[in-house]
Nucleic acid binder design. Structure first.
Lengths: 63, 63
DNA sequence: ATAAAATGTAAAGGCACATTGACTCCGTGC
DNA sequence: GCACGGAGTCAATGTGCCTTTACATTTTAT
């Protein structure tokens, strides 16, 4: 899966720590997801979508 | 998370084995997801949505 | 140039997802 | 009665998500 987290975060001028705090996860997890080390769980994907006011499909795509 | 898998499956007259085969996972995994034992991974959620021609948000909801 | 902030990476641990094989329970029909 | 298909569940195993602590690298600003 690919994702647009880095772009969405940049648009809002947030750093990885800011995003992590809002999602209630660690900064390393945000980084791992952004750099494609792994995909978020479904509940976390929902929280991410909610935070950005987008659909999951608008943030995450298959490779 | 709650999901509408059982209903969507019934609408198509598929049993858990049929669905499992189409998703490339085990029947026990389909059952576990339907009965709420756990949530699917994000990639699997995408495969499920694709199979039913729906959005992830139309199949899965927060509790 | 150099200090600080942001990002990337790594190891180790815990819990959740997903697997197989085997077993039970329920409803239908022979 | 008994067999059958469908569904639910268990134990054991392996992998993946997410954590913490720690350190290295890159970017930004002074």
């Amino acid at each position: 899966m690919k994702n647009r987290l880095k772009v969405l975060r940049a648009e809002r001028d947030w750093n990885q720590s800011d995003l992590a705090a809002q999602l209630g996860i660690s900064r390393q997890s945000v980084n791992a997801i952004e750099t494609g080390k792994y995909d978020p769980s479904l509940p976390l994907a929902f929280r991410i979508a909610d935070l950005f006011g987008l659909r999951i499909e608008d943030i995450f795509r298959r490779d």
